[in-house]
Design a protein around this nucleic acid. Structure first.
Length: 429
RNA sequence: GCGGCAUUAGCUCAGUCGGUAGAGCACUGGAUUGUGAUUCCAGGUGUCACCGGUUCGAUCCCGGUAUGUCGCCCCA
């Protein structure tokens, strides 16, 4: 295998079996979104680099080392393959004044790009379904988004996906807590390990996740963010939880849940499974009230979440979901010039009646063609040879039942006969 | 980006204590003239991931690269 002919590392071809599985997934997702009043928006895959730097945060891993950024050699613009969807969605909302008159519920799907080391459930080109509600201030929209998740897992036949919830408060509250946390860790600098020292000023919250037992004991006494939340933040958080309790959605409050992107505030949540190894988050999101203003729009509250398509599809597979291989209704077998001409007419005529037809192409003996007909999974074979072509007839053969004689029919009668039998067999099931 | 493990026919894998390789499935053709599935027969299955080193000789040993995978980091 020539190395120059390989897909870029971490960017996958989705082959037909897999792609069909994705399409059924996407159909379920679209009808689910529609049932909550979300409308599609299609956004560019490439955006100006500064958009992501401003939205995601200069010091995040994504911006510092994971973005596919380049200079457009034709005009010198700094461009980036989108590493996430929210920034572009907000940019579009501002550019087109989408929230000037009214709030909006929007969704988008498509590829995102992050230069990380590939692993199961983590790819350099991966796909998300992103859902954003712009212009809603209260905890009701947060709660509705979480309820949406629960419904989708049910629609997809998934269970065992657990909800984790936290509140990040407002930026000033978060900053206070962070300062308290850093000074707490500085007091215990003697027991910090190398990893913790590195994170102390870059990502002190992550020290709380340390697997080092001596650190864990120390972390138990660390300042808690929830103690730095003001009344408004606490009320908002409680408002979300009340709806979840009313709806009977179990959740765990995880004080260590911080999202990787700077723009989040107040409610953040993740849906997590333990069946996918290290990449267990299948859906995550939260509130980002500051982002629209930060990107130059009029201050607009907002909330959103994103799902990882690869991860969800893998989880459905893991749960035993298998795609039903789609089969045509009819496979048309033909041999001889006149027969081929009639076969085209027959195939198109059947399709006019809504029947799925695979017309044999590529010649070969009747035997070889019948093998293909069988392998296609078709319910019927329609066989046309010179004899049939001469009389305007075709043989209709039932492929998947024993003891049914094939019948010779006028080509005009084929569609009715096939539809009639398809309906009969549907009723038997 | 760091560490462990892996890479043999289209697919799933076996194997050679270093002498250039097999199985099953799949595929193709045949078992009387124009008919599939089961059965029988026949047949290609391959730079043993790539590049280099050691050796008379490497698919096997060593090094590097690529890709995958598991974990870390991080995240959907």
């Amino acid at each position: 295998m020539s190395q120059t002919l390989q897909a870029v590392r971490g960017m996958n071809d989705i082959l037909p079996d897999e792609a069909e599985f994705w399409e059924t997934f996407e159909e379920i997702v679209r009808s689910w979104l529609k049932s909550y009043g979300y409308r599609p928006i299609r956004l560019p895959i490439v955006e100006p680099t500064p958009l992501f730097k401003r939205a995601i945060g200069e010091v995040t891993d994504i911006v510092e080392k994971e973005m596919y950024s380049f200079i457009d050699s034709l005009n010198g613009e700094a461009l980036t393959l989108r590493p996430e969807g929210t920034a572009g969605c907000v940019r579009a909302a501002i550019q087109h004044s989408l929230v000037a008159q009214q709030p909006r519920r929007l969704y988008y799907t498509g590829p995102m790009f992050r230069h990380e080391r590939p692993q199961k459930g983590r790819y350099r080109q991966f796909h998300q379904v992103g859902v954003e509600a712009l212009g809603f201030a209260g905890p009701d929209i947060d709660a509705e988004m979480i309820l949406m998740g629960a419904r989708l897992w049910a629609d997809l036949g998934l269970d065992g996906i657990e909800l984790q919830l936290n509140s990040l408060g407002q930026p000033d509250e978060r900053a206070q807590h962070r300062a308290a946390l850093v000074s707490y860790f500085e007091e215990h600098a003697d027991i910090l390990d190398e990893d913790a020292r590195r994170r102390l000023y870059t990502n002190p919250l992550r020290i709380l996740d340390s697997k080092n037992p001596t650190l864990q004991a120390m972390c138990a006494g660390a300042p808690k963010l929830i103690d730095h939340l003001g009344t408004d933040s606490l009320n908002h958080f409680e408002g979300v939880q009340r709806v979840l309790r009313d709806a009977g959605i179990p959740f765990t409050i995880n004080p260590r849940l911080v999202r990787g992107l700077d723009y989040y505030n107040l409610t953040v949540f993740e849906w997590v499974t333990d069946r996918l190894g290290a990449q267990g988050t299948v859906c995550a999101g939260g509130r980002f009230d500051g982002l629209v203003g930060q990107l130059g729009g009029k201050a607009t509250p907002a909330c959103g979440f994103a799902m990882g398509v690869e991860r969800l599809v893998a989880l459905i597979r893991e749960s035993g979901g298998e795609p039903a291989a789609p089969a045509p209704d009819v496979y048309v077998v033909h041999q001889g010039d006149d027969a081929t001409r009639l076969a085209f007419r027959v195939a198109e005529g059947l399709r006019n009646n809504g029947i799925d037809v695979l017309l044999h192409c590529g010649g070969g003996s009747f035997k070889a063609q019948m093998k293909k007909a069988d392998a296609s999974g078709a319910t019927f074979a329609v066989v046309i040879g010179d004899d049939e072509a001469a009389t305007g007839e075709a043989q209709l053969k039932v492929l998947r039942e024993e003891g049914v004689e094939q019948r010779k029919l006028k080509v005009d009668e084929l569609a009715d006969a096939i539809i009639g039998q398809l309906i009969d067999s549907d009723e038997e099931e």
